[in-house]
Design a protein around this nucleic acid. Structure first.
Lengths: 231, 231
DNA sequence: CTCTAAATAGTCCTTCCGGTCTATTTCTCT
DNA sequence: AGAGAAATAGACCGGAAGGACTATTTAGAG
């Protein structure tokens, strides 16, 4: 009865020699609880079955065909089970692959000219749930998320937005935050243990204050101004 | 008539000696186009006036009061003009500040025990629009964004979601993507140059296929499944 | 203690939304 | 050329949402 959680690393690539060498290195020179497997085709089962183990697929990108296949895989990756990771190996030292990879949910990229110690460090980081990309890529991607999630379009006045957000009462902020996840005023009223009439009253005040005509636009306002709403 | 874009670095802190030393270092040992200023209080004007220059505020966090003040500043930071950055200096080597900082829109954190060469490298990175945080923090923050934006709650079936997404026609995907930003069926119909009846017909099919009762839930579905919708 | 803002609850009316059903035209694939 | 899917357009109905307005109770600031 084993309680030790294993790390399974699956190398997927067609270059037999290179990958056998890598296999050899991973089995011998890294974390002793790493089990390494070598495949020339990708077994979907890794990304579908839930398991206690941690799985990492190392996707050899040297072959252009396999590189294209990765893009198709993209729709599945973000929905892989917990502790199921995928990283590219043998990538060309070209930033484009990093952006594509990070966007489709790949957890890291290793390059042809990386050192073995980088590879070792990176694999352990990914097995630990981290991402392994260049600082520039991580920074740029995160920046774009932060901008999308909080910055205002250039035509809006931040002072105005702050004033508006501050004018919302505690209860109004509460109602506003419930709009996206609940279908109807009825549901909101049940959630808050008040009458649907009360919810309607709050909503009317909210719409007037944030100057939107309906709940769809209120959701939009909320995504733009979420940060300003904190109590 | 100068066309050279300048970098203005504003050190904000009360420790006169340390900060004068830093001021000295930045003026003499870094990028020649850096102008360095020393303040013991924060001038809001930096974050409000638009300018051609690149501005960086180095916020001394050694003083607990100033650390708290930073949090209050947080609501303004994400809405600062372009090329207007803020970073913490003299932070305790403690991850908590990084997470707080990255969440309120700070562009980087430097620690008490960082080397001068790290500081130099980091300041140049930030002036260049990058973020300067530890790889672990960048990775963790980005992961949380990626999860929020694309992963499905554990109870949903990804195969089912893929099937559903694939069953949407091109026009239906188009209509679905317009829901969050447009108020009414009328507006969507104007955008697509079709009759409001057509939009209603598409919406009915969409709701049936993705199994939601109304546009609010459709927006929710969309945020969860945006990735699956790409053509 | 008092005054005010917030939270609560309601009416009445209009508009828009979503469900069911039908029908025509335009693509697309074989 | 013909079948089938997709896109278009519409009628009809019930219900939910939103606007304008009123009113009572509760809570917090001074």
């Amino acid at each position: 009865m084993e309680d030790v959680k294993d790390y399974n690393v699956h190398i997927v690539g067609s270059n037999r020699l290179d990958n056998e060498l890598l296999h050899n290195f991973l089995e011998q020179s890294t974390n002793p609880s790493i089990n390494c497997f070598l495949n020339d085709t990708f077994s979907h089962s890794i990304f579908q079955e839930k398991t206690e183990d941690t799985n990492l697929v190392l996707w050899d990108c040297k072959d252009p065909k396999r590189y294209d296949h990765l893009k198709k895989l993209g729709k599945h990756i973000p929905n892989a089970p917990e502790r199921c990771y995928i990283a590219c190996i043998n990538a060309h030292p070209d930033h484009k692959i990093e952006k594509m990879a990070i966007n489709i949910g790949v957890n890291g990229v290793f390059y042809e000219n990386d050192t073995l110690s980088t590879l070792k460090k990176g694999i352990n980081a990914i097995l630990n749930g981290e991402l392994w990309f260049s600082r520039v890529t991580l920074s740029a991607t995160l920046s774009s998320f932060l901008i999308n999630n909080s910055c205002h379009p250039p035509d809006t006045n931040i002072d105005e937005a702050l004033k508006v957000a501050a004018s919302l009462t505690k209860r109004e902020r509460e109602v506003l935050r419930l709009i996206p996840s609940l279908s109807s005023n009825e549901e909101i009223s049940e959630q808050l243990y008040v009458s649907p009439f009360t919810v309607k009253a709050h909503l009317r005040n909210i719409y007037r204050k944030i100057k939107v005509p309906n709940r769809v636009q209120a959701i939009f306002w909320l995504t733009q101004n979420y940060r300003l709403l904190e109590d």
